[in-house]
């Protein structure tokens, strides 16, 4: 089950982090891109912390799932696909969300997740195949 409170907390933390890191924005990317990247990096680093916590308690889902939590106003189709995303294994889910939902490149994902480009591509394909099966099922 998705924890909306954690998603809210993460959103607040991202804006506070942006406020504090404004001096690191050098104009080499658009401001929106910089803010988006900062948000993804923060969520991914929080994910590791969350995973460690979950490993001690439940071994449950990664925190990235909270970022793509089903919106109460989502359409039926969107809910289907959001629900399918929740069933993906953690690494496949991260790559899928970053590539197919957020539009990051494999190069960017490999850097953010510290994996090879080949791993990013294979995890993406794995995720898509699982998504297809889930949506067909």
């Amino acid at each position: 089950m998705v924890d909306e409170q954690s998603a809210d907390d993460l959103t607040q933390e991202v804006f506070i982090r942006a406020w504090r890191k404004l001096d690191t924005f050098k104009g080499q990317a658009q401001f929106g891109t910089w803010l988006h990247r900062l948000a993804v990096n923060h969520v991914l680093s929080s994910r590791q912390t969350q995973r460690n916590r979950e490993a001690r308690h439940t071994g449950g889902e990664g925190i990235l799932s909270q970022v793509i939590a089903p919106n109460r106003r989502s359409s039926g189709h969107a809910l289907d696909i959001e629900g399918a995303i929740q069933h993906l294994p953690a690494r496949a889910k991260e790559v899928f969300v970053l590539y197919d939902v957020e539009g990051y490149s494999h190069d960017e994902i490999s850097e953010a997740l510290s994996v090879s480009v080949g791993t990013s591509k294979s995890q993406l394909h794995r995720a898509r195949m699982l998504m297809r099966q889930h949506l067909d099922g």
Partner: peptide, 11 residues
Amino acid sequence: VVSRSGALGNI
């Protein structure tokens, strides 16, 4: 899958 996931709106 690709087209539907790309159409997901912001939360």
